[in-house]
């Protein structure tokens, strides 16, 4: 397996070079395409139902984006509602009393998650990789995947029990060591910390899989050569292991940065309360509240569009930077 090759996830930028070179006339080309389609009819037969599904379920609702520039009146429908230009965006960026705080919360939580949450599984993977007792390693890995499989609703329920200041085990232990009980889920000071920590706890084990896969494909001869050169474990990690992981890290980082405005709706929605709205209210929870509870669907769509566009640009930018740095990009 060639690990330096990034997964070719995208198709953008690689339009079909396989079709016949454009030498003949326009009609010849159409004929050629027709022949190609007939020849590959079974492949196309497989593909088309899925394309139709995409047409219906992914593209079908896209016309709704126009709501971001309209005032939605139910009776007029989406097409018939009156255009209002950039009104909703203007409101968000100039008038809304909440939006600046919500943007700030989203970005802060997301950045914490990248800074602390992203490296955590890499470190754990490196640790797993060093363990020589195969059985222990396997059991430990299995256990570490466990929380990944549960929903935030389940984990929310568990966290409420564990973190309770009066009956929770975490505060019980803190008190043994002489600390005052801390209300992790209820106070602004600790809420983000709780978010990040619980997210790491949930995903750290699962996150190691992809890095372990990359690690297992490193040529063992490289380590042997390094040992002969007198490199210790630390140096081997720095000079062999980490560089070998770089392509994977690069791609995952692009994906993560592209989603920087996704600070984790499921998690926050199932853990927050009015007491911590000030630090915990993010774009998605805001959208949920104003859309589904306050009936402001146009504003909701505007926020969603803003999120999509920013996310898309971030992915392209991250992709560009990573290519500049000499790594294989995503597209």
């Amino acid at each position: 397996m060639n690990t330096t090759n990034a997964p070719d996830i995208g198709g953008i930028g690689s339009p079909h070079k396989k079709l016949k070179k454009s030498s003949g006339t326009w009609i010849d080309n159409v004929k050629q395409i027709g022949r190609d389609y007939v020849k590959n009819r079974y492949l196309l037969l497989l593909l088309f139902p899925v394309l139709i599904w995409y047409g219906i379920f992914a593209y079908g609702p896209m016309y709704g984006v126009q709501l971001a520039f309209k005032d939605f009146y139910i009776k007029e429908g989406i097409w018939g509602s009156p255009w209002v230009g950039l009104k909703h965006f203007e409101y968000l960026f100039t008038a809304s009393p909440q939006f600046p705080q919500i943007m700030k919360n989203t970005i802060i939580i997301s950045f914490y998650q990248i800074i602390f949450g992203f490296p955590a599984p890499i470190i754990l993977a490196l640790l797993f990789n060093e363990i020589r007792f195969t059985f222990f390693k396997k059991v430990a890995q299995t256990i570490s995947y466990l929380p990944h499989f549960l929903s935030w609703i389940v984990i929310g329920g568990i966290l409420i029990t564990l973190l309770s200041p009066s009956t929770g085990v975490v505060n019980y232990i803190l008190e043994i060591f002489g600390f005052d009980p801390v209300y992790f889920l209820g106070t602004e000071k600790y809420f983000r910390f709780t978010l990040i920590t619980s997210a790491i706890w949930k995903e750290i084990g699962w996150g190691t899989i992809i890095f372990l896969a990359a690690l297992s494909s490193i040529d063992s001869q490289m380590y042997e050569a390094a040992v002969i050169d007198g490199a210790n474990r630390w140096k081997q990690t720095i000079y062999i292991t980490l560089p070998a992981l770089m392509p994977v890290i690069a791609i995952l980082l692009i994906l993560r940065v592209g989603n920087v405005l996704d600070a984790g709706f499921d998690q926050i929605f199932n853990l927050y309360s009015p007491a911590v709205y000030g630090v915990a209210d993010i774009l998605d929870t805001y959208v949920y509240r104003i859309g589904l509870q306050e009936f402001q669907f146009s504003l909701t769509t505007a926020v969603g569009l803003f999120k999509n566009v920013v996310g898309f640009m971030l992915v392209l930018t991250a992709n560009f930077i990573i290519k500049k740095m000499g790594q294989e990009g995503l597209y």
Binding site: G55, I56, Y59, G60, P61, M62, Y63, G77, I78, W79
Partner: peptide, 9 residues
Amino acid sequence: VLVLSACSG
């Protein structure tokens, strides 16, 4: 896309 969305609309 337009046809599809018009349909659903």
